[in-house]
């Protein structure tokens, strides 16, 4: 009941561009305030049926609340003001950084294992399996994870799908064109790690499949969040609408 009390206001604030954290805080404090007013009214002998309407009236109308927040630009999220930067551009360096960080982590771990535990990395079935798992992560899961995160962040801020879709497409395409390989050391050669980006006749189909899977997974996240929110958005009778005094 309490969680749905200001549902409509919460949605309006998110759509207006208030940062999700700010919305959560305002709604939390309004809920506390509402409970305090109900307790005060009960102590004054107001009957429990009339008290909620009076409490809403004390808080002020939803329109006034929204206007008073929108009059303070410092309470609005920068991502809502610049959705193109936040959701079309930012995911690209985020993906690149995560890609590089993953490889640095792999190479760093191998160096540490060799230096501290004297592990010798010689080509074996176990290392081949490790390579396949890491390739799965860096070529398939990482671009999908970055795109899904971007889609989720966009939905949390109720950003329309246009700019997030552009970002997802770019990350999906970049992710599909990346390649990665490890050559473990053998008796006669040293090991090497290679990664890059490129497009050729040999990788057309896998690249398209990778890009399509990233796009589909991200759009599913957005649509799933939207549907779940829609299902939970039916407020109980009389709740969620502040009464104009």
């Amino acid at each position: 009941m309490r969680s749905r009390r200001f549902w409509a206001l919460r949605e309006r604030l998110l759509r207006a561009g208030v940062a999700p954290r700010g919305v959560r805080r305002v709604i939390g404090e309004l809920n506390d305030h509402f409970d305090d007013v109900l307790a005060e009214l009960a102590a004054q002998g107001v009957n429990a049926k009339d008290a909620p309407a009076q409490a809403y009236a004390r808080l002020g109308s939803e329109d006034v609340l929204v206007r008073s927040i929108l009059a303070r630009p410092e309470l609005l999220s920068w991502a809502h003001r610049r959705p193109a930067v936040a959701f079309a551009l930012l995911p690209v360096p985020a993906f690149a950084a995560a890609f590089v960080a993953s490889i640095v982590a792999l190479v760093g771990s191998a160096h540490l294992a060799r230096a501290w535990f004297a592990v010798r990395f010689v080509d074996s079935a176990g290392l081949q399996l490790l390579t396949r798992c890491f390739s799965l992560w860096i070529l398939w899961l990482l671009p999908t994870a970055v795109s899904m995160l971007s889609a989720w962040a966009a939905w949390r801020r109720r950003i329309a799908l246009l700019w997030p879709s552009v970002g997802i497409l770019i990350v999906g395409a970049l992710g599909a064109l990346t390649n990665f390989g490890v050559h473990w050391a053998t008796a006669t050669s040293r090991g090497a790690v290679g990664a890059g980006i490129g497009f050729g006749p040999a990788n057309e189909l896998p690249a398209l499949v990778r890009a399509a899977s990233t796009l589909a997974a991200s759009l599913l996240v957005y649509a799933g969040c939207w549907l779940a929110n829609r299902r939970g958005s039916q407020p109980p009778r009389g709740a969620g609408t502040a009464v104009t005094p």
Binding site: L30, R58, S61, R72, E74, P245
Partner: peptide, 14 residues
């Protein structure tokens, strides 16, 4: 409206 205190408080805090 008592509710409008909160945006004002948050803004002053920021």
């Amino acid at each position: 409206g008592e509710g409008v205190l909160y945006p004002a408080l948050h803004s002053l805090e920021l």
